[in-house]
Nucleic acid binder design. Structure first.
Ligand SMILES: [Mn+2]
Ligand SMILES: [Mn+2]
Ligand SMILES: [Mn+2]
Ligand SMILES: [Mn+2]
Lengths: 235, 235
DNA sequence: TATTAAAATTAGGTATACCTAATAATAAAA
DNA sequence: TTTTATTATTAGGTATACCTAATTTTAATA
């Protein structure tokens, strides 16, 4: 068994590796992720290596063992299932669920999590569009993809950006496009592939094909024609 | 704010004082309750006294301050609401809920607990028959008391148990004593205080004085001689 | 390659939370 | 009232989980 501190280390390593697609996870990466100092992290990493939850060497950095991976996946799974339960069953708002799920993910009862997962009807994605791993750690194909791969009628959730220049971020704020905003694709231009988005408050904005490549979205519409690729995710 | 360790100390003190009706709560009492050694408890009690969560002196023992009482009541409230939710909404068995509630009681979200309490319809008692305190810490009045405080002729309704070990629960099922069953007290032995119960179907069963302390009942006989004292409850 | 920047590591310290063993203070019993 | 338990307290130790400051190693760059 492992403490919730160790669970948080394992989850952080999982996020860096699987979420952020880092080939090598460093002590510094983990320290930044958890808001700790590197000597603290190094010390813990050494002790977790002795426990065979991870392996660590300078060439390949920190890596999850089979055992460590199983624990990490389980925490991510619980987090995303709880977020979904809080959102769908208990009617919490989209922005409230993460903080509570950070606590609930450490409640250790397989029966409890499978029970609420069954009540939810075995969903594949959490309210942020992130994939819920199955009991073996296999992820459903992620809905996260660039805005450019949309079709008309997509119900989109803005998940992030893959470009961080000021000019691009200014572009987004001028168009009133923010993280976690929702839009529907009204029209995609046949010539230049620019996209007309409508917000919940019926505000329209036109996004160029170039910009659309750098906006990461998930389509929340069931069985939408857009579903066809992969990318990065967060809890 | 306080850690979940401190929450457990405060809850233990509350249980000893309000549940077990101890006038003076000692370091040893707390150590036994939490399965710790007295020096460990003394150290913590000193630090919690500095934090004004409790007071401690040899004459009056350990006492909850206003602040400490509020925290303790809140943990007990969360515990009992979660137990009820697990039992009623998530269909867990009577004997499974306590262990999971021990974890869930430390999840810190007033909104979450009030939401599930509303879903349950604001019940006054948990699945073991223990009272759920309101937000101010006031307990609903109940006729509930241990079977041991009976007199001959009491017409009893089994409301719950204040002990959750397998051996005790097996004892009850062997004697065919279950939740909501009714019995009359035929005889109380003058020497060992064991009780002979008769069920509606005229089945007799003998309950030891020790077991009777952990069986919670209400007496349905008007003006019965048994009505005259207090009792113990557990979470 | 020499210099500089970044990352990892070592050394040493603090706070919490537990323990055992020994002693002191109280309460109970003989 | 002595003796004996029980309870509380002190002293000293371990493990975890954090920190800062200094140093070493490795990588980048001029
Ligand atoms: Mn999420
Ligand atoms: Mn989250
Ligand atoms: Mn209960
Ligand atoms: Mn309980």
């Amino acid at each position: 068994m492992q403490s919730f501190k160790e669970e948080n280390y394992l989850k952080a390593i999982y996020q860096l590796k699987i979420g952020d697609q880092k080939e090598v996870v460093t002590i510094t990466d983990i320290a930044v992720q958890l808001g700790l100092k590197t000597p603290t992290v190094l010390e813990k990493i050494k002790s977790m290596a002795i426990k065979k939850l991870i392996s660590y060497d300078k060439i390949s950095g920190v890596q999850l063992t089979k055992n460590g991976f199983d624990v990490a996946v389980n925490i991510v799974r619980r987090h995303r299932i709880w977020e979904t339960y809080l959102y769908k069953e208990l009617k919490f708002s989209w922005s409230e669920v993460h903080e509570i799920a950070e606590q609930l993910e450490h409640v250790n009862s397989a029966k409890l999590i499978e029970k609420i997962y069954a009540i939810l009807g075995y969903p594949k994605f959490d309210p942020h569009g992130d994939p819920i791993p199955d009991l073996k750690g296999v992820l459903p194909k992620s809905e996260r993809r660039p805005l450019s791969k949309s079709v008309e009628g997509c119900k989109l959730l803005i998940l992030g950006v893959s470009e961080h220049s000021d000019s691009f971020l200014n572009y987004l704020s001028e168009k009133h496009i923010g993280l976690n905003d929702r839009f529907v694709i009204e029209k995609i231009d046949g010539f230049d592939e620019s996209l007309m988005l409508i917000s919940k408050s019926k505000e329209r904005c036109l996004v160029s094909a170039k910009a659309a490549k750098f906006i990461q979205v998930a389509c929340l519409k069931e069985n939408c024609a857009c579903k066809a690729s992969g990318g990065t995710t967060k809890a």
